[in-house]
């Protein structure tokens, strides 16, 4: 009575390498995100400081977190696809 996947999944030799990459990228993003929360808590006045083009730290950091997630997503996909293609050749 075990639950089986809806679609048949082929063996993926790159799975463990991809998982390690995922953890590393997750930890990196978490650090950047934690930095945002830390500034909000410990130095809230920094959020209002002018940074670039008249925009303050809060806006730039917020936009930065959104854009970083998108960019890291593309990098992760590129690296994972390469690993899959190389390791699952045969």
């Amino acid at each position: 009575m075990l639950h089986e996947p809806a679609a048949r999944i082929e063996t993926d030799k790159a799975a463990s390498k991809k998982a390690k990459l995922g953890v590393k990228m997750f930890l990196f993003y978490t650090l950047v995100y934690a930095g945002f929360v830390f500034i909000g808590l410990a130095r809230p006045e920094w959020m209002g400081l002018e940074a670039i083009r008249g925009l303050n730290v809060a806006i730039l950091y917020g936009f930065g977190l959104i854009l970083l997630a998108i960019i890291m997503g593309f990098i992760y996909n590129y690296l994972c696809t390469r690993m899959e293609d190389e390791m699952n050749k045969h």
């Binding site: 089986e4 809806a6 995922g22 993003y29 997630a69």
Partner: peptide
């Protein structure tokens, strides 16, 4: 949006493999 990072890097592929 940041929550999707957890979904992409940690959950998406293994969950696809495990569930029905």
């Amino acid at each position: 949006l940041a929550g999707w990072v957890v979904a992409l890097f940690l959950v998406a592929e293994p969950l696809k493999k495990l569930g029905k």
